[in-house]
Design a protein around this nucleic acid. Structure first.
Lengths: 214, 214, 214, 214
DNA sequence: GATGAATGAGCCTTCATTCAT
DNA sequence: CATGAATGAAGGCTCATTCAT
């Protein structure tokens, strides 16, 4: 029973990852984590100061990486969207690069961060990312419209695209621990969306600015 | 059952629907439901035996409907896939019909069932639906392959498509209470996937059965 | 068992008062309070939002009263000390009035506030009161000295007088629930100190400012 | 006992003394004591069987000393009170001698015993001492009364005197680690009470045995 | 002798559920 | 029918104590 410290820490992290995956942050039970890790509740507190820090230990690094990616990326894309009209090709390349970068470093962490962080300080993060992609897409689509503005419904359409795409990527992460498969499937999903979006862009180009939806 | 007031029952159901939507099954509070419904906690228990039955009352009918749709539908598609080589065109039509049928009949119920059932006995339902779509798609894709079988990786690819599509639809349901928008956005999402899948099918048709992925 | 609300509330307050008296705020146990009050722990939370509020309910009113007394009193005494050299007679009268005012309204509350509030937000209050009396006495004694300043040791002496007097009053409060006895005993104690202080003042008047103590 | 290092034992005792002084018995933390003593928690248990024994080791000797003082002293005073009518003068001398004896021999121990023993088996010790002094004073005062008996109220008055005096001494001990100041302040406090008591005795001598208080 | 990881009972608090009224 | 007071099990967390090393 008297195992080395590092082993115990890892056992806790593993048990916690499982628990957080199954129940989410808010509903996760320290008692269950302890049981799963083969120890008493109190002992967890020798390694982590509490539920929050435990979640942090799993999800924090991923969040940091996301943060730096996000800020770098935002600058890069701003330049492109503003200066180059045909940015679309290369836009997807960048989206993918960013995602792959995150995915490589993440494992289950990114999934927990995005899907199971309700109740923690990270709970807004998926919304943030979605909003981020949404903002980008709105620029791209608005640029495609003759009059440069999107109707309410078109905005919803774009929002739907961004949120389902992000959600899809999250799902791929969740179900595919192996990085290579993960990369390939992400490629594939983005390809699907890329085709769909291109076609949608075509439609938009032909539309007048008439309000399509109430 | 005894002498219960239908209006009270409805008030409870309405309040519960709101609560489950906002907090999910697990985090929903009977106290808040009672308060919202304008009565005491205890009184809810005269109408429903507990939290679970209350959730059941909202979500159960939708689940039944889904179940019958699913079985009917599975038979229909089985026929098609087996008898008709060019089933794809009308495959999507059917997928959409099924979805739209569910969506129309369900209101918030379907959303609760799919998105907010964690902790209840329905929590596996999204997986079920995904599995269902996955089974269908596997048949379609397998039929497209020259040798009629899919590699491990191809199976994963199909699984990815089904799970992200379902998740996407769920998201649309969650974020768009208004049936019309909901229908349009679902159409759009399916169109995106339809395009992507057609292209994927083309690729598959040209592939030999070589194992693509380790 | 199904008692009236007010009765239960009182039972809790009574049990809590006992518990706080015996163990102090920090070490008081909600479980014990519940047991003593003849109910489950959880039920206490229907009446008080937590340990702190429970303590507050007992001690808060006394604190408010103390606060208003203190501020009124401080002004009054400032005037006297500054303007009238022979304020001493009447000084004690005022000290007593203030104390008696507090005592009348307090019961055990004042004692809890002063002696058993460690760990709560009130824990500094006895120090405050002592400091308050100390400040007053320092003025009185300094005025008695030929050179108007007190040596380190004399300051300690005064501090000792104030702290033991306050502590004594607190003790009287603790041990004498009945207001009349309480008043008489406080009178007596103050008389004792008054005599002692007068004599001490005499000594001070004759002393040069020599440093009496290292 | 085995082969223990005296210095380690002393380090523990010193750290524990500090900890008990700062937090009291109940709130004292073995972890903090260990840290302060520069060792691990577990090691303390090689020297002391637990928190209680640790407190005992510090406070026990002082308690023993008090006990023997108390019994000796009680006999001596009994003789005096019974044989000598004018015992008062030298009564205070004896009280003070006893106190000073204790103070000299005890250091912080006495303070811990009197002020910080809550939650330990010594928590009643201040009451004991007070009772002891009370017993003495009751004899003195009863002897002063024409009819030799005290009313209920008078008994309370005496009790008040004893308890506040003891409490005062305890306070002086707590706040004045330096023995010299401690001795001087104790003298002073006793002088104050001595004066007060003398006057009280005068009053008693003139009183009939009438019941003074309801 | 000493370590410090681990235990387990206890802490305050919350909440679905029950039941006397 | 409805109330809402009361229950009891569980939540996160702390800490004196034990014990394998």
């Amino acid at each position: 029973m008297q195992t080395q410290k590092e082993e115990v820490r890892d056992a806790i992290l593993e048990a916690a990852t499982t628990e957080f995956s199954q129940h989410g942050y808010a509903e996760a039970s320290m008692r269950r984590i302890a049981k799963e890790a083969g120890m008493t509740t109190g002992n967890i507190y020798r390694y982590f100061s509490g539920k929050e820090e435990l979640f942090d230990a799993i999800v924090g690094p991923v969040y940091s990486q996301y943060s730096s990616y996000a800020s770098e990326y935002l600058q890069a894309v701003d330049l492109h969207v503003n200066t180059d009209e045909n940015a679309t090709n290369d836009f997807w390349q960048r989206v993918e690069d960013a995602l792959v970068g995150l995915l490589k470093a993440s494992g289950t962490g990114l999934m927990l961060l995005l899907c199971r962080s309700e109740g923690s300080k990270y709970e807004r993060i998926k919304q943030e990312i979605t909003l981020f992609l949404d903002t980008l897409l709105l620029k791209v689509f608005a640029a495609a419209k003759p009059n440069g503005t999107l109707t309410d419904y078109e905005q919803r359409e774009v929002k739907m695209i961004s949120s389902t795409l992000i959600e899809g990527v999250v799902l791929i992460i969740r179900d595919n621990p192996e990085p290579k498969t993960l990369g390939l499937l992400t490629d594939r999903l983005i390809a699907v969306y890329s085709g769909g979006i291109d076609q949608l862009l075509e439609e938009y180009k032909e539309r007048e600015g008439e309000n399509h939806h109430a």
